[in-house]
Simulated assay, not measured.
Amino acid sequence: MSMMIPELTDNIIDHLHDNRPALCSCSLVCRSWLPSSRFHLFSTVVLCFIDINTGLPMICSQSSTIAPYVRHLELEDGWNGWRRWLNDALPKLPNFGALKSLALGHIDWAQLTREPRRRDRLIGLSRCLNHLALEYVKFETMDQVLDLFYVAPSLEKVSLASVQCENENVSHTRSKTISLKEITFAGGSLARPLIDWLCLQPMPSVHTLNLAFVRMNQVPSISRYLKILGPKLEHLGLECSGECQDALCKAIDLSHNTSLCTISIDGIVLYDNYSNSPGARIQGWVIDILSQITSRYISMVTLIVLTKTPQEIYSLDLPALSLAFTGVSSVLSERNARLRFHVLGEVNRSIGIRWP
């Protein structure tokens, strides 16, 4: 074993990055294999209300050697009657020197940061982040949100799911710019004021924008932001339902996004008992969106379809979709863009489906 050069063993262990039993075995082979094994074993640490009695003492112990290997940390506080543990535990967390990604869930920001020790600990965790994910987090003000962004100068990716903000106003002192490259919005009242704030940034930097659970009051802000992003935007994801589909389709203009490479449209529901079925109406919205594309770089269109039975797939109007990709004036046809379906549901793949 001593004859193998370290670069070779590191490469072998790297190929086992998602095989935890194999990594555990490698860590026991010899001392020199331990750092490479731990690099993958402890790259992601999740602490939530379920396992705080086991995982938390192990991480916070003075003899623990796990923290230097953690690159992605998830902290989920108690909710729906479960014990809220993060207030007490946050000041005790060790320094995660390699941390690049932080996910926080079910947190009342004002309550969590009211004590200086907890606030300072959060700032310490955030300084070197390039990815921040928030889910079911409640902020009192937009200033709290921006202060969190500002302490992470390397922040490039932000994911926001059901994040609420009570006061949408931004104080005039918050004029510092941030250079985000990828943003995901998935519901919550923070989406609209944050998009409005991003519209005021002097130089658009976002190349990937994902918009899910779009609400009617967000549509004007989204339309304005897509126009501002212009040729900077390369990847776009959309998901909305009901009247928002028509409103969004009429409000946005993708002709400004001349560098768009991929577009993904989610939430195409084909259930027989769903209010928006049959799928023809939904597909009309999809086709209208696709017809706006003028980018010469478009290479992939992804449609995410939800269905329960194979028969419901027949409601997809493939000839209409095909026309969007084969029409004489279609950019999708000119650039040989590919159409990819993600079908979600209990569909028996062994049943052959023939399109009429």
Rank of each mutant, 00 (worst) to 15 (best):
residue 232 K to P: 03
residue 208 T to K: 07
residue 130 N to Y: 08
residue 145 V to C: 00
residue 325 F to D: 04
residue 224 R to P: 14
residue 312 E to M: 02
residue 81 G to S: 11
residue 204 P to C: 00
residue 148 L to T: 09
residue 117 R to T: 10
residue 260 L to F: 01
residue 174 R to H: 13
residue 27 S to P: 05
residue 42 F to L: 09
residue 10 D to A: 07
residue 129 L to I: 09
residue 121 R to L: 10
residue 308 K to R: 15
residue 190 L to W: 00
residue 105 G to Y: 04
residue 282 I to A: 06
residue 348 N to E: 14
residue 160 L to Q: 04
residue 2 S to F: 10
residue 288 D to H: 12
residue 337 A to V: 01
residue 299 S to A: 07
residue 186 A to Q: 10
residue 287 I to V: 04
residue 176 K to N: 09
residue 78 G to F: 00
residue 100 K to Q: 14
residue 103 A to E: 14
residue 64 S to N: 10
residue 128 C to H: 09
residue 189 S to K: 07
residue 209 L to G: 01
residue 182 E to Q: 15
residue 281 R to V: 08
residue 171 S to F: 09
residue 62 Q to N: 15
residue 278 P to R: 03
residue 126 S to Y: 06
residue 311 Q to H: 13
residue 102 L to W: 03
residue 247 A to L: 06
residue 159 S to A: 10
residue 139 F to A: 02
residue 26 C to F: 06
residue 313 I to Y: 14
residue 86 L to V: 10
residue 236 L to W: 01
residue 310 P to F: 01
residue 285 W to V: 02
residue 34 L to K: 08
residue 8 L to R: 09
residue 87 N to T: 15
residue 223 S to I: 08
residue 123 I to D: 13
residue 352 G to T: 12
residue 72 H to K: 09
residue 89 A to Y: 04
residue 16 L to S: 06
residue 83 R to A: 07
residue 258 T to L: 03
residue 269 V to L: 10
residue 224 R to L: 01
residue 348 N to L: 11
residue 115 E to N: 11
residue 135 E to N: 14
residue 311 Q to C: 07
residue 270 L to G: 08
residue 190 L to P: 04
residue 90 L to S: 12
residue 38 R to S: 13
residue 97 G to Q: 14
residue 122 L to K: 05
residue 100 K to S: 12
residue 289 I to R: 10
residue 283 Q to M: 14
residue 197 W to E: 08
residue 40 H to I: 07
residue 133 A to G: 14
residue 66 I to S: 07
residue 22 A to P: 07
residue 30 C to R: 10
residue 244 C to Q: 05
residue 176 K to R: 12
residue 64 S to L: 04
residue 71 R to F: 05
residue 79 W to Q: 07
residue 219 V to T: 09
residue 220 P to G: 02
residue 171 S to C: 06
residue 178 I to V: 14
residue 220 P to R: 02
residue 201 Q to I: 05
residue 76 E to M: 07
residue 83 R to K: 15
residue 219 V to G: 02
residue 66 I to E: 12
residue 140 E to Y: 07
residue 153 P to E: 05
residue 345 G to W: 01
residue 308 K to E: 13
residue 197 W to D: 09
residue 116 P to W: 02
residue 29 V to W: 06
residue 44 T to H: 11
residue 103 A to I: 06
residue 19 N to M: 06
residue 166 E to T: 13
residue 271 Y to F: 13
residue 353 I to E: 13
residue 166 E to C: 09
residue 271 Y to K: 12
residue 237 G to C: 00
residue 267 G to P: 03
residue 173 T to F: 11
residue 118 R to N: 12
residue 259 S to T: 03
residue 109 W to T: 04
residue 297 Y to S: 04
residue 165 C to Q: 03
residue 161 A to T: 14
residue 299 S to H: 06
residue 113 T to R: 04
residue 338 R to N: 13
residue 240 C to H: 01
residue 120 D to T: 09
residue 262 T to Q: 01
residue 353 I to P: 13
residue 317 D to R: 12
residue 253 D to R: 02
residue 91 P to K: 05
residue 158 V to P: 02
residue 212 A to F: 05
residue 247 A to V: 05
residue 50 I to E: 15
residue 83 R to Y: 05
residue 316 L to G: 13
residue 342 H to Q: 08
residue 242 G to P: 05
residue 63 S to W: 13
residue 328 V to K: 15
residue 237 G to F: 00
residue 69 Y to C: 15
residue 325 F to V: 12
residue 322 S to F: 10
residue 123 I to A: 08
residue 193 P to Y: 00
residue 10 D to N: 14
residue 342 H to I: 06
residue 69 Y to G: 14
residue 222 I to F: 00
residue 186 A to P: 11
residue 151 V to S: 11
